[in-house]
Amino acid sequence: MSAHLLMIEDDTRLAGMVGEYLGQSGFTVAHSPTANGGLDMLGGQPSTSTPDLVILDLMLPDMDGLEVCRRIRTTSGDISQIPILMLTAKGDPLDRIIGLELGADDYLPKPFEPRELLARIRAILRRRIDGTATPHKVLRFGTLEIDRDARSVSVGGQPCDLTAYQFDLLVTLAERAGRVLTRDQIMEAVRGRELEAFDRSIDVHMGRIRAAIEADPKNPRRIVTVRGAGYVFAKQQD
């Protein structure tokens, strides 16, 4: 069964080219040229037609793409967990960081190679599928519970709001509790793209995870930074 994608992009020519290219690779692509139209498509579709991934342009005529991302992430139900891949002509690293902080799973600047877009979409969807296929069910660390089958995280019984990508990052660390992992090792474990040396997006995701699971994110006890090395998920209980 092919994956269903929703592309929110005001450049109809680009959307048509991307839709045709992805269609040749087995994807079904719906398109909205406006933010409000895309949000209506998300909110109005039955659950069986909910997209598997949203391709979201940052610069839209009726609403900033960052605001669209925020609204998707704060929507109740399955829609809030849909992976988001941002497209933008803006080259400012701050836009990328803000997008990731709001819950985007990946970020691709324009102009881009269609093959790279396809590779990133497949990587995001593969992480999601692989995560649900694992035989490990619940990881427990004191009051922290990570349910791999349900792809949910809770602390003291209270649910934590994480994107699909952040969930995979957390599981990668938790499964290797007590072991220091470099950024490259973490990215390889979740089958993501290799980051350039100056790309700190993984640190942004770690900050979001800490904000969700740590009692004091500024003084984390679960996900600890090892200066010059990477990150370690501490074994200690609450």
Score class of each variant (00 low, 15 high):
residue 52 D to A: 08
residue 90 K to E: 10
residue 81 Q to T: 15
residue 77 G to I: 01
residue 48 T to H: 11
residue 89 A to D: 10
residue 41 M to E: 15
residue 55 I to S: 06
residue 81 Q to R: 15
residue 85 L to R: 05
residue 75 T to V: 02
residue 83 P to V: 06
residue 43 G to P: 00
residue 85 L to P: 03
residue 42 L to G: 02
residue 85 L to T: 03
residue 75 T to C: 05
residue 77 G to D: 09
residue 82 I to R: 00
residue 50 T to K: 01
residue 73 R to M: 01
residue 87 L to W: 09
residue 60 L to N: 06
residue 70 R to V: 05
residue 44 G to T: 00
residue 58 L to C: 06
residue 41 M to G: 09
residue 67 E to S: 11
residue 63 M to H: 09
residue 60 L to D: 03
residue 43 G to M: 07
residue 45 Q to S: 13
residue 51 P to D: 03
residue 78 D to G: 11
residue 69 C to F: 08
residue 90 K to C: 05
residue 69 C to V: 06
residue 74 T to F: 06
residue 42 L to Q: 02
residue 74 T to M: 01
residue 75 T to F: 01
residue 81 Q to V: 07
residue 64 D to C: 08
residue 44 G to S: 01
residue 84 I to K: 13
residue 71 R to M: 11
residue 90 K to G: 07
residue 62 D to W: 14
residue 89 A to N: 08
residue 49 S to N: 14
residue 83 P to C: 03
residue 53 L to K: 13
residue 42 L to I: 04
residue 52 D to I: 03
residue 81 Q to P: 00
residue 76 S to R: 04
residue 49 S to W: 12
residue 89 A to W: 01
residue 77 G to V: 03
residue 48 T to Q: 10
residue 43 G to A: 10
residue 67 E to P: 09
residue 63 M to W: 11
residue 85 L to Q: 03
residue 63 M to T: 08
residue 61 P to L: 11
residue 58 L to E: 15
residue 68 V to Q: 06
residue 45 Q to K: 02
residue 46 P to A: 09
residue 52 D to N: 13
residue 74 T to K: 03
residue 73 R to Q: 00
residue 72 I to S: 01
residue 67 E to G: 02
residue 43 G to Q: 07
residue 49 S to E: 15
residue 68 V to M: 04
residue 71 R to L: 14
residue 57 D to G: 10
residue 58 L to Q: 14
residue 76 S to E: 12
residue 65 G to T: 10
residue 88 T to I: 06
residue 64 D to R: 14
residue 77 G to W: 00
residue 42 L to D: 00
residue 70 R to F: 08
residue 75 T to A: 09
residue 77 G to P: 04
residue 74 T to Q: 11
residue 51 P to S: 07
residue 89 A to F: 03
residue 58 L to V: 11
residue 59 M to V: 15
residue 70 R to A: 10
residue 61 P to T: 14
residue 59 M to D: 10
residue 65 G to A: 12
residue 80 S to Y: 05
residue 55 I to F: 01
residue 56 L to M: 02
residue 71 R to T: 07
residue 83 P to M: 06
residue 59 M to K: 14
residue 82 I to V: 03
residue 56 L to W: 02
residue 52 D to C: 04
residue 63 M to F: 08
residue 53 L to N: 12
residue 44 G to M: 00
residue 44 G to D: 00
residue 73 R to T: 02
residue 64 D to Q: 12
residue 87 L to Q: 13
residue 46 P to E: 12
residue 68 V to I: 11
residue 84 I to A: 06
residue 45 Q to W: 07
residue 47 S to E: 15
residue 65 G to Q: 11
residue 76 S to P: 04
residue 57 D to M: 05
residue 87 L to S: 12
residue 42 L to W: 04
residue 60 L to Y: 13
residue 58 L to G: 10
residue 87 L to D: 15
residue 52 D to L: 01
residue 78 D to P: 10
residue 62 D to Q: 13
residue 66 L to T: 13
residue 80 S to C: 08
residue 66 L to C: 12
residue 60 L to Q: 09
residue 87 L to N: 14
residue 74 T to H: 07
residue 43 G to R: 05
residue 53 L to D: 03
residue 48 T to F: 11
residue 63 M to D: 04
residue 62 D to P: 09
residue 64 D to G: 11
residue 55 I to W: 02
residue 88 T to L: 06
